[in-house]
């Protein structure tokens, strides 16, 4: 096989593309531009940390199944950590969103980073919702019977039946978390590829 043939291989081309866009020093940088100096920058990583806690507590709940937490004090405690990590997750994500909005962090070819962030937020709202209706308690009875009207009215209810516990649980622990994690990964990789958005030029106007 000639070098030219190897160069034409899909594998070679993919590796070169990835290495070009995301060399190791970009994926795991050891420096950041000096302007990256504000507490507002910690809410992205806080969101990811909370997401890890959501997933970890969710995994522990999954080990013993969907109704374990009603009858076990350990189970109830794990459920409590699941709830509070979700609250922190949304808390941090919303502060992160405000921060990125006021930095206009989509500038300089970063619009896809913003778009994936918003889609992740929407997917997370859906993930949380399917969790609420999968609790197998009064809360899930009420939320599902209320939410059905909103969802049915759009026609989506014809395939997405919020009263079907099995379906909602599958969405909650398989489909939507998968989507949320994939979206988060893409979002973070885009941040690494593009770097942190530089400040506006402002009146100083020296950076151009």
């Amino acid at each position: 096989m000639t070098t030219a043939e190897i160069e034409r291989q899909w594998t070679t081309r993919l590796r070169k593309r990835v290495a070009g866009h995301l060399p190791p020093e970009k994926l795991l940088p050891d420096t950041q531009p000096a302007y990256v100096s504000s507490w507002i920058y910690v809410f992205g990583v806080t969101t990811i940390a909370a997401l890890s806690m959501v997933i970890l507590s969710g995994i522990i709940l999954a080990i013993r199944g969907p109704q374990w937490w009603h009858s076990s004090s350990i189970g109830h405690f794990i459920n409590s950590t699941h709830l509070w990590s979700v609250e922190i997750f949304f808390f941090a994500m919303i502060v992160h969103l405000w921060g990125k909005f006021f930095m206009a962090a989509w500038r300089g070819g970063r619009s896809l980073t913003w778009v994936t962030g918003v889609v992740t937020f929407l997917a997370s709202v859906g993930t949380a919702f399917t969790g609420y209706v999968s609790q197998t308690n009064f809360d899930s009875q009420w939320i599902s019977t209320q939410a059905k009207d909103g969802i049915n009215a759009t026609g989506v209810g014809s395939i997405f039946n919020v009263l079907n516990l099995g379906q909602m649980l599958m969405w909650h622990i398989v489909l939507l978390p998968l989507a949320a994690v994939i979206l988060t990964t893409i979002h973070v990789l885009l941040v690494r590829v593009k770097g942190v958005v530089p400040p506006f030029e402002d009146e100083k106007g020296t950076t151009k």
């Binding site: 420096t31 950041q32 531009p33 000096a34 302007y35 990256v36 100096s37 500038r107 300089g108 070819g109 970063r110 958005v197 530089p198 400040p199 506006f200 030029e201 950076t207 151009k208």
Partner: peptide
């Protein structure tokens, strides 16, 4: 976005 040519930390 303006090109950043300043310091890194």
């Amino acid at each position: 976005a303006p090109k950043y040519e300043g310091k890194y930390a």
